[in-house]
Design a protein around this nucleic acid. Structure first.
Lengths: 262, 262
DNA sequence: GGTGGGGTGTGGTCTGACCACATGCTACAG
DNA sequence: CTGTAGCATGTGGTCAGACCACACCCCACC
């Protein structure tokens, strides 16, 4: 396999090896494109193609100019590339919306479970060794912003998607956060598409706000089963309401993690 | 924001819009690079950068030559790009291994739950309307291959990773499958790294084989809770055994992975 | 000492050229 | 008429060179 690596692939491979070996670390500068091209014996355009890939994947950022801050810098920001990937994958009809929703159910149930358990643990242990209590300030701020009555549907749903992403971030799991970030645009897409067919947006938005508050309350109370259940109903409910298909409720998996009811 | 799109970004955007509008569908050919460049008023190198990105993301494949089969063809194979993304993300220390493992626990528990429930449903309904029974032939074939006593550790672990991916595929959820495919190389990486420190590989591999068989048996028996529990113990057990850290039980690692990059 | 302007190095882009390859057609031989 | 060898064509893959815009750095000048 991999008969002969194309020029840009050798560049990508070289950079990947440098990352793995530790020669390149987040924060470091990549050599200038021209230098890299000469060093690897390829054309500058091939170097650029590899750098472009890494940039879209969220592994580095580039900026023109001179001095520190310019050039290609390793950043490795999670979700940066996953977002582009998921968005394009959905655009190309690669992912059925139902699968996106089901994956949300699984991941978000896990997220709020972890958050609630961390919260409960922070309560039980008086010890102030490490602040285990999850930081929900960002999600709460988003909820406050969503109270504004002047929001359009699109604006509301954008904040909604940000709220769910913020919960994932608060859980601290970077892989889940990255995946959720990737799904975000897909989520916003189907949410917005479905919202146009709702009987009463005002009514629905009020319900969504209340559900969000309830989820946060359950987390802060350390009630993991409740948080899990609320999140499931929140996501599945909106999907069912906007897509007229009750398939999700049918099999009703309690998502991931531990069984809810024994 | 988004002051001025760079040339290759306009190309990417144009293709994305064509995908969303249905002008481009999986199986279609992209216009030749030169034509696309002329059409969009950019240089061919910019078109190439956009195409390169789409190729790495698994949205199209390119081939030289002439006639049908050559050129850039939309494929939208799920997980194609996620694999590159995750691999590089891990290479750049973007994802802690613990988060990868925790995400596996969540996703795979969901996968086997769905499989087991589908299996149980297939049993209960005598009706042969649609064969709901999940197709486990690929996973089982992999298990058979893993019985070979001549396998090296690396070969065994490769098959192991493939087995878990095959389970995800069998579940039918494309988003989960894509994510697992992306995590696969990361999984193989930490599994292989940890295996070198094991007391007895022979002993461990025997246990892993047995656990795999038990998981499949639970799925086929339609016993979702058992399957979920077995998968959890299987993954967490190996991780604990090879990493000596029981951090998984006490989750929530505050992730402040933002690189300083300045 | 402060300040302005040019020098310099960087990414961003375009152009043109060449190569390798796969195809398809055509002209020639049978 | 048929089959095949070989050239024409169109494609991606790559390179080299050139120019631009930009941000920083340094030094001469005020």
């Amino acid at each position: 396999m991999s008969a002969v690596l194309r020029a840009w692939e050798t560049v990508l491979q070289s950079i990947e090896l440098d990352l793995l070996s530790g020669r390149l670390r987040p924060g470091d500068h990549l050599p200038p494109e021209r230098a890299l091209a000469a060093e690897l014996g390829v054309g500058r355009s091939s170097v650029r193609e590899a750098i472009r890939v890494l940039e879209v994947l969220g592994l580095l950022r580039t900026s023109s100019g001179s001095g520190p801050g310019a050039g290609a810098i390793i950043v490795a920001l999670p979700g940066g590339g996953m977002s582009a990937l998921m968005r394009l994958q959905v655009a190309a009809h690669g992912f059925p919306v139902a699968d996106v929703v089901k994956t949300r159910l699984v991941l978000e149930a896990s997220v709020v479970t972890e958050l609630a358990e961390a919260s409960a643990q922070a309560d039980s242990t008086m010890v102030a060794t490490v602040s285990l209590r999850p930081n929900l300030s960002t999600p709460v701020q988003l909820l406050d912003a969503m109270e504004s009555p002047t929001l359009t549907e699109a604006e509301f749903l954008t904040l909604d998607a940000e709220f769910h992403l913020a919960l994932a971030e608060a859980s601290g799991n970077q892989v889940v956060t990255a995946t959720m970030a990737g799904l975000r645009s897909a989520i916003e897409g189907y949410a917005r598409a479905g919202a146009t067919g709702l009987a009463s947006w005002a009514h629905t938005s009020i319900r969504l706000r209340a559900e969000h508050r309830a989820i946060v309350a359950a987390i802060e109370a350390g009630d993991a089963p409740a948080a899990r259940s609320l999140v499931h109903d929140h996501i599945a409910g909106y999907y069912a309401e906007t897509h007229q298909t009750h398939l999700l409720a049918a099999h009703h998996t309690d998502a991931s993690g531990q069984p809810v009811a024994r």
